[in-house]
Design a protein around this nucleic acid. Sequence first.
DNA 1: GCGAATTATTTTATGCTTAAAGCATCCGGT
DNA 2: ACCGGATGCTTTAAGCATAAAATAATTCGC
Lengths: 158, 158
Amino acid sequence: MDAETRALERPVDHKREVRLWLRLLTCTTLIENEIRRRLRRDFDVTLPRFDLMAQLEKAPDGMTLGEVSRRMMVSNGNVTGLVERLAAQGLLERAPNPSDRRATLIRLTPEGRRNFARMARAHEGWVAELFAGLSPPQGETLMDLLARAKHSAAAACE
Amino acid sequence: MDAETRALERPVDHKREVRLWLRLLTCTTLIENEIRRRLRRDFDVTLPRFDLMAQLEKAPDGMTLGEVSRRMMVSNGNVTGLVERLAAQGLLERAPNPSDRRATLIRLTPEGRRNFARMARAHEGWVAELFAGLSPPQGETLMDLLARAKHSAAAACE
DNA sequence: GCGAATTATTTTATGCTTAAAGCATCCGGT
DNA sequence: ACCGGATGCTTTAAGCATAAAATAATTCGC
C-alpha cells in the first residue's frame, strides 16, 4: 500500500500542528518557570501575585474582581483568594463601588505601587535577557505570528 | 529634553520584549485552557494526567519518575501525586527496577494505552483546529522562531 | 413596582504545583 | 569493605487553580 492510498483511507494526521503546539508550550513553560524562580528568589513573591499587581498598576482608579479575572484568564474564585493574600500583605485594598454594590473595586496601596515598581524594573530586564537571542525583526515576526495564532485559537473557541 | 537625551540618561527600556512575552503567554494560556476544557468535557481527564500518559506512551518499556519529571518540566513531588492518582484509576502501573532499587519504572496498562489512544486522536484534531488560521509556511516560521526563543531562554537560564 | 433573569462575588470540594526536608539506595575513592 | 556524596523518590506545608453551588445585588420586561 503506497503513501497515497494510505492518505485516502486514514484520517488526516496533524503531527505538524501538534509539534508546533508542544514547542509553543515548552518555550512558554521554560520562560515562565525561570521568571517564577527569579521573582521568588529576589522579591519573595509568586508569579500570580505579580501578575495581579501588574493588572492593577494599569488602573490607578481601581478595577473590579471580574475585570481582573477576565484579563488574567483565570477563574473568579481564584482572584478572590489572591486578593485576600495581597490585601493581608498590605499591597492592595478594597474599596466599595458606589455605583454597583455587588462589585468591589480593588487597587494598589502606595506601598503596593512602590513594591511593584521595583519588581517591574527587574522583570523587564529579565524578559529582555531571556529574549536576547532574537533580533528585532525576528521579534516582530514572532509577534505577528502569535497574533495570528491567537486569533485562530480564539475563533476555534467560538 | 529630546528623545536622544532621554535615551542616554535613562536605563534602556524593553517594552517590546515585554509585549512579546505577554503575547506568547496569552496565546499559550488561551490554547491550554481550551484543551483543558475539552479534555474534561469529553474524557473527564485533567491536562496533567493526559500529559503524563503522553510521555509514557512514548516509552513502552517504562520510564522512571525522574525522567518523566524532567520531560514534563515539573517537580518530582508533583509526579509522585499524578502517578498515585493514575495508578488508582488503573491507567498505569509501577514496576520495580531490577538495576536500581531507588528508581521505580512506570508504564501504561493496556487499558491506559487504549484510553490514551482515544484521547490522543481527539487532541490531535483539536490542536489542528486551533491552529487552522496559520498556513503551513507560517507554521514553519513560527516553529523556527520558537526554537530560537527556546535556545535564547535556555542560555539565559545558564 | 414586581418578579425573573442576569451579573458579581464568595464558598466548597478537589486537584495541581512547588520548595524544602527526609529516607533509601547507589557509586566512587580510599 | 567502608564512608561520604550523589541520586531517586516521597512527604509536608503552603499556595494556586478550577468547577459548581450559594449568596447578593442589579437590570429588564411587563
